[in-house]
């Protein structure tokens, strides 16, 4: 079975400037799947792509435009994105809106780690993509893709809300082009994960002894 990826009321030609999603689509078309798995996958991806909840996260200017797309004129609720969660556990994607500094970088990484799979990252604005106007600064990370994997880049300083919506639709397209069954949900075992995380947080772990009763 061949899966089709389309976004409602958007022509395909308006979208094909994104090479790596094109690549994903091609792979998807070339390797057909079992009908049942394919149909199920289609439904799941349809659901996932239309219900991407953002994490309320913003560091600077782009954050205001992020609020603007939530507000009345641009209204990303139309796409089902409006349930902005403040807890990273419940969010589906993190929109890195603004500059990430050296001090913020570990925090951002941690936020990303705290999110539940499947999770996505959108780098919004020049600062998040490459450091933007602050590229030469001593305290600015030159692109969040150095810290966490980025799915969609939205250029601009800050990007217009229309550009953000376009970027969000690209993310929807990417989600639709994925295979949930046997694909992205093939995670690592809990033990491996635990090991990985422990390596990462060992420093803070030593820092304070936890009380197993539940209160640290």
């Amino acid at each position: 079975m061949k899966r089709n990826v389309s976004i409602k009321s958007m022509k395909y030609e308006d979208f094909n400037d994104n090479e790596y999603i094109e690549q994903m689509l091609k792979e998807l078309r070339d390797n057909g799947t079992n009908v049942i798995v394919g149909c199920l996958d289609d439904v799941i991806e349809w659901g996932r792509s239309n219900s991407l909840w953002p994490l309320t996260f913003a560091t600077s200017c782009c954050g205001i435009e992020f609020m603007a797309i939530g507000a009345a004129r641009y209204d990303f609720a139309r796409f089902g994105f409006e349930v902005a969660r403040s807890s990273p556990r419940q969010a589906d994607f993190i929109m890195v809106a603004g500059t990430i500094t050296n001090k913020m970088a570990p925090v951002l990484k941690r936020l990303y780690d705290q999110m539940a799979d499947p999770k996505y990252v959108i780098a919004t604005g020049g600062c998040a993509i490459s450091g933007g106007p602050f590229k030469k600064s001593y305290h600015v990370v030159n692109g969040v893709d150095k810290i966490i994997p980025v799915d969609v880049y939205i250029p601009g300083c800050p990007p217009r809300p229309e550009a953000m919506l376009y970027g969000l639709m690209q993310l929807q397209r990417k989600v639709k082009a994925q295979r949930f069954l046997g694909g992205i949900n093939k995670g690592i075992s809990e033990k491996e994960y635990e090991k990985m995380m422990r390596k990462d947080t060992s420093r803070t772990e030593d820092y304070r002894d936890y009380d197993e009763s539940g209160l640290a």
Partner: peptide, 13 residues
């Protein structure tokens, strides 16, 4: 300081 971008230092160059 989580968004300290060193603007003052940048301006010097």
């Amino acid at each position: 300081g989580y968004i300290h971008r060193g603007i003052e230092k940048l301006c010097e160059s």
